[in-house]
């Protein structure tokens, strides 16, 4: 799957190049393609990040839905933090709980951990293989199945299709 790595890396670099430049003339395009090709050929051969990604139409659709779910959760979590901070009695009930993930790929787990950190009241403290230790600001369930259902399930069903 090395060629897939190189191709994905190339397009990511090219997109970043165009966003940073803001110009779309032929010289910029040429230099961008040249540099992106060079970097992706040298560095993306050894990394294995993108080889686990799916690029089927279903996965792309799920990715778009996932971005919207994630942004809603981010806004929700900010209002949650605002409410807790502004309430005089400081309504928190914190604790560290354990969550189990079914995701196998490293990138998928990283994105799951990042999403959990940015959702209401949860913060990933440590990842050990398929166990995630999560600091929860308002502990509802302490056992592993229910905590997984409450925290990780809403992202996992999308990430499982995208990253396998």
């Amino acid at each position: 799957m090395r060629i897939k790595n190189t191709i994905v890396g190339f397009f990511l670099l090219l997109a970043t190049w165009f966003l940073l430049n803001g110009k779309y003339d032929i010289v910029t395009l040429g230099i961008g393609i040249l540099i992106s090709l060079f970097i992706s050929l040298i560095f993306c051969n050894k990394c294995e990040i993108f080889s686990e990604m799916n690029f089927s139409p279903k996965a792309i659709l799920y990715f778009i839905v996932y971005v919207f779910v994630f942004l809603t959760e981010l806004v929700k979590s900010n209002f949650d933090v605002a409410r807790r901070v502004l309430t005089p009695s400081l309504p928190i009930n914190p604790g560290i709980v354990e969550v189990e993930t079914k995701l196998k790929s490293k990138l998928g787990r990283m994105i799951l951990a990042n999403s959990i950190t940015l959702t209401p009241g949860t913060l990933t403290v440590k990842i050990e293989n398929d166990k995630l230790f999560i600091h929860w600001i308002n502990v509802v369930n302490t056992d592993i199945e229910n905590a997984t259902k409450d925290i990780a399930a809403k992202f996992e069903k999308y990430l499982k299709v995208i990253y396998g």
């Binding site: 604790g95 950190t117 913060l123 502990v139």
Partner: peptide, 27 residues
């Protein structure tokens, strides 16, 4: 999120105590 994850992990590793209102610490 990555930087705060690393900060929290390091804080727990060197043994910074959780607040007294904590209900559970599985780690």
């Amino acid at each position: 999120p990555i930087s705060s994850h690393v900060l929290a992990g390091a804080a727990h590793y060197i043994g910074i105590p959780l607040t007294r209102r904590t209900v559970i610490d599985k780690l």
